[in-house]
Design a protein around this nucleic acid. Structure first.
Length: 617
RNA sequence: GCCGAUGUAGCUCAGUUUGGCAGAGCAACUGAUUCGUAAUCAGUAGGUCGGGUGUUCGAUUCACCUCAUCGGCACCA
């Protein structure tokens, strides 16, 4: 065995170890092993083992520093590791340095990591003061061998694998944070603290990751949206709500107009419905029972009222008024509906999670026979929109029946099958999320990641056999019978606020030109160019190019800096040179330069379509 | 809602350790400058130090409460 092999041979070889009432200290050098692939230090394969080592070293350090620490679980993660602990005085982020120093000490000591196999009773006795470890033991069979790993004074119930000593994990790690968690993720359980760390094979990888975290801050939509003068938040006067500044509202309108047009092409009819409703409606629909904590409600004129958290019951109301016969189906409604939800304070997050947001909502009322075709067309339209916005990597989830649901199971099964079939026909690469569906039906969810790689649900297609029944709507069939329509809830972007936030983060503020609220700024080099610049600007405006101007006496350099910070893609520079040649110098934010006539420039904008870039090349 | 951190000028942030007149840069405003691809110069103005209560001769600073934000957790029709 070479020195830099770190494989935990027992784990990988699946060796049969003797049952014994005594703990077995296994010395690897005495084990015969064949047919095993060794894992070497400094390989990707080793990384998750080393991160798991780091979790144990973290726990060991905490055990030494906090005598009364109780431990939960401590796995490796995609970028590092964490350990859940409970100590009598809580651990603050100020304590991390001290813990990290202790960890480095343990790494330095290269403590041998032993794998041991105990009996259930032995383990039970050993962990008698470790409440959470005992709970884990309770979940195991009494006849099972219990595997533990031990290094120094620290022994942990663990499936492994681990490397051979605490030195292998190296020093390329950093504790990154502390957060509160519930034991087993259940809010009814004890509150514990999770200490997070990140660990990499090389110093460069570590620094790269830390830089990534730092840069994620820079491209945060809250910061960028403010620099770009799109949005404003004032949490003291309206927490969890967006103030759209003029440029932001323009962006919002450009996106919603694009969607309106597209939906009209697909025979959706746009409607607008009230914000405020009598609570009775939501009691009937079933929402009140399940979501009253998240609905904003109050008495108004002595009537119990609710601000709509969604648009479906309102669209059902329109269906009731407008649709009588099977001839009217499928009936497709669309609305940019502003919804209010009382989101928990800790979940608010810029425009990603707000208490007031605009759903690009749509509902299709159809017959059972039309369902598949409708869902398929929903999937295809959705794909087209995401592609136009430049999102290629969207995550698709199929969420199935939750424990708390309405309606009967056979309808649910039918609905889940229909969604799955359509997803396959649309070539969607989806993952099933068991029990994550809405109470009234299963759903396809379309999620995108933000700059920090957090996933946010945007689009959704939900099948619903329940609301048409609870709110009692029907249509007359060919045979003259009354039948309930099937309802499909359909949002392409989901919340416009959330989608725009993600778009800002993805593009680092460089919005695709076809929806950039300001497409170009015309800037003068000096006052003598002002007349020509004015002419250029007014011509662009006449041709509906979203241009702005800057004829101030600031230097060109300072203008470039200013509009780079505002994330304006194109700067039209006009000075003496341009005046004389009757040309416009275009500077892309990247620094690339072009010289065009006014007509050429206008034509480029005219031919833009939904392309992100001007075809300047 | 929970754990931890944070809240000072429009924005980014010092100052609080040890209580004693509220600080800087950028932005804004005024004036000068007419400049060629990421910051021209000078001047002026701008803050109840998130809010409340307490301790104190005196609180931005200390204590308690509260609101909000950030990183996570939980929740997300």
């Amino acid at each position: 065995m070479s020195n830099n092999e770190i494989i935990d041979l027992h784990q990988y070889a699946n060796l049969k170890l003797p049952n014994s009432s005594d703990s077995q200290k296994i010395d690897i050098s005495k084990i015969q092993y064949t047919n095993m692939n060794p894992i070497y230090l400094n390989t990707e394969d080793a990384l998750h083992i080393l991160r798991h080592d780091a979790a144990h070293v973290l726990a060991q350090a905490i055990q030494e520093l906090y005598s009364n620490a109780e431990f939960g679980v401590g796995p490796s993660t995609e970028t590092g590791f964490f350990y859940d602990v409970k100590v009598s005085d809580s651990i603050s982020s100020d304590n991390l340095e001290e813990i990290e120093a202790k960890m480095r000490e343990i790494v330095n000591q290269k403590q041998r990591i032993f794998r041991e196999v105990w009996t259930y009773d032995q383990a039970y006795k050993f962990f008698k003061n470790q409440k959470y470890k005992l709970e884990i033991l309770n979940g195991l069979q009494k006849s099972e061998d219990i595997q533990v790993y031990r290094q120094g004074n620290f022994t942990d119930l663990c499936r492994g694998p681990h490397s051979l000593h605490t030195g292998n994990m190296g020093y390329n790690f950093k504790l990154t944070g502390v957060s509160g968690v519930y034991w087993k993720g259940d809010k009814n359980n004890d509150q514990m603290q999770r200490i997070y760390g990140t660990l990499w094979l090389t110093k460069e990888d570590l620094n790269q990751h830390l830089t990534f975290l730092k840069e994620a801050n820079e491209w945060d939509h809250r910061r960028l949206g403010q620099n770009m003068e799109l949005i404003h938040f004032d949490s003291q006067i309206s927490s969890g709500m967006t103030f759209w500044l003029p440029q932001g509202k323009l962006l919002f309108n450009l996106i919603s107009t694009y969607l309106s047009k597209l939906k009209a092409e697909h025979e959706y009819q746009e409607v607008s419905t009230p914000f405020l409703y009598n609570k009775v409606l939501w009691e009937k629909s079933g929402h009140w029972k399940l979501f009253q904590d998240n609905m904003i409600s109050f008495d108004f004129d002595e009537v119990p009222c609710v601000l709509k958290p969604m648009n479906c019951p309102a669209h059902i109301e329109i269906f009731r008024k407008m649709v009588k016969s099977y001839r009217d189906l499928p009936y497709k409604l669309a609305e940019f509906g502003f919804c209010h939800r009382y989101e928990p304070s800790g979940s608010l997050h810029g425009m990603m999670r707000t208490r007031g947001f605009t759903q690009d909502d749509a509902h299709i009322f159809c017959t059972a026979n039309q369902v598949e075709e409708m869902i398929l067309s929903c999937c295809n339209l959705l794909k087209q929109v995401y592609t136009n916005f430049g999102f290629e990597n969207i995550k698709v989830f199929l969420s199935t029946r939750p424990d708390e649901f309405a309606g009967d199971i056979s309808l649910w099964n039918q609905a889940e099958l229909a969604l799955e079939k359509a997803a396959k026909l649309a070539n969607l690469n989806y993952t099933i999320q068991p029990k994550e569906g809405a109470f009234y039906g299963p759903k396809l969810e379309f999620s995108i990641c933000d700059r920090r790689k957090r996933t946010w649900q945007c689009g959704t297609i939900q099948l619903d056999f329940v609301l048409p029944k609870s709110l009692d709507i029907g249509y007359v069939t060919e045979e003259g019978e009354i039948e309930r329509p099937v309802m499909i809830h359909y949002a392409i972007l989901g919340s416009l606020e959330r989608f725009i936030a993600i778009l800002i983060e993805h593009t680092k503020g460089l919005l695709p030109l076809w929806i950039a609220p300001t497409q170009i700024v015309i800037a003068t080099v000096s006052d003598e160019a002002k007349n020509f610049a004015e002419k250029v600007y007014s011509n662009l405006i006449k041709k509906e190019v979203r241009a702005k101007f800057d004829f101030t006496s600031k230097t060109l350099s300072s203008k470039i800096k200013l509009y780079t910070e505002k994330r304006i893609s194109l700067l039209g520079v006009i000075g003496k040179k341009e005046m004389q040649s009757n040309m416009i110098s275009i500077r892309k934010i990247s620094g690339k330069m072009y010289t065009l006539t006014l007509d050429e420039l206008v034509n480029h904008f005219k031919n833009l379509g939904t392309k992100s870039e001007l075809p300047l090349e």
